[in-house]
Amino acid sequence: MSLDWDSVTAFALALPDTGISTSYGSPAVKIVSNGRAFIHTGREAGSFVLAIDQDTKEMLIETDPDSFWQTPHYHGWPGLLVRYGSSDPERVHAMIERAHDWAAAKPEVKPRKAKQ
C-alpha cells in the first residue's frame, strides 16, 4: 500500500468527528467539535505533518527515522513529519488514529484576537 495525501486524508476522514479544513493555510483534517487539526500537508515535499504528543513524537523519530522526522521548524512543537514513502503504512495509520484521539481530547480552539 502506497501513501499519498489523498489516501492519508481518506483514512483520517473515516475516523469519528472529522472534517476537511485548513491549518496555517494548508489542507488539513480537523476534529469538527473542537477545531483541532491532527494532519496537514505542511511545507516539506514527500511528507505530511502529524500533530501528536511530544513523547510519542520522540519515540517515533527514535524508532523509525526513515518514516518519522522533523526539521528545525518542528523542534519543541507537538508535531512531526511523516514520509509518504514509509515502509510501514499500517504504523502510519495507527499513528494517525493516535493523533486523532489526542486532538479530540483537547479543548476547543479559541479564536485569536485580531491584531490592531
Score class of each variant (00 low, 15 high):
Met1Asn: 06
Ser2Arg: 12
Leu3Thr: 05
Trp5Asp: 05
Asp6Trp: 05
Ser7Pro: 10
Ala10Met: 12
Phe11Trp: 02
Phe11Met: 08
Leu13His: 13
Ala14His: 08
Leu15Lys: 14
Pro16His: 04
Thr18Leu: 00
Gly19Gln: 15
Gly19Ile: 10
Ser21Phe: 14
Tyr24Phe: 15
Ser26Trp: 10
Ala28Ile: 10
Lys30Arg: 15
Ile31Phe: 03
Ile31Val: 14
Ser33Pro: 07
Asn34Pro: 05
Asn34Phe: 00
Arg36Gly: 07
Arg36Gln: 14
Arg36Leu: 06
Ala37Gln: 09
Ile39Asn: 01
Ile39Pro: 00
Ile39Lys: 03
Thr41Asn: 06
Glu44Leu: 05
Gly46Tyr: 01
Gly46Lys: 08
Ser47Leu: 10
Ser47Phe: 01
Val49Cys: 14
Ala51Leu: 07
Ile52Ala: 04
Asp55Thr: 14
Lys57Ser: 03
Glu58Arg: 08
Glu58Asn: 11
Met59Tyr: 07
Met59Ala: 09
Met59Cys: 09
Leu60Met: 00
Glu62Gln: 13
Glu62His: 06
Thr63Asp: 08
Thr63Arg: 04
Asp66Ser: 04
Ser67Gly: 00
Ser67Trp: 01
Phe68Ser: 02
Phe68Thr: 00
Gln70Ser: 13
Thr71Asp: 01
Pro72Arg: 11
Pro72Asn: 14
His73Leu: 03
Tyr74Met: 10
Tyr74Ile: 11
Gly76Val: 08
Gly76Pro: 00
Leu81Phe: 04
Val82Cys: 08
Arg83Asp: 01
Tyr84His: 04
Ser87Tyr: 09
Pro89Val: 00
Glu90Ser: 11
Glu90Gly: 08
Val92Phe: 07
His93Gly: 01
His93Lys: 15
Ala94Met: 02
Ala94Cys: 06
Met95His: 03
Met95Ala: 08
Ile96Gly: 07
Glu97Ser: 15
Ala99His: 04
Asp101Trp: 06
Asp101Ile: 13
Trp102Phe: 15
Trp102Lys: 13
Ala104Asp: 06
Ala104Glu: 10
Ala105Gly: 08
Ala105Thr: 03
Lys106His: 10
Pro107Arg: 12
Glu108Pro: 06
Glu108Gly: 02
Val109His: 11
Val109Lys: 12
Lys110Trp: 00
Arg112Cys: 11
Lys113Pro: 02
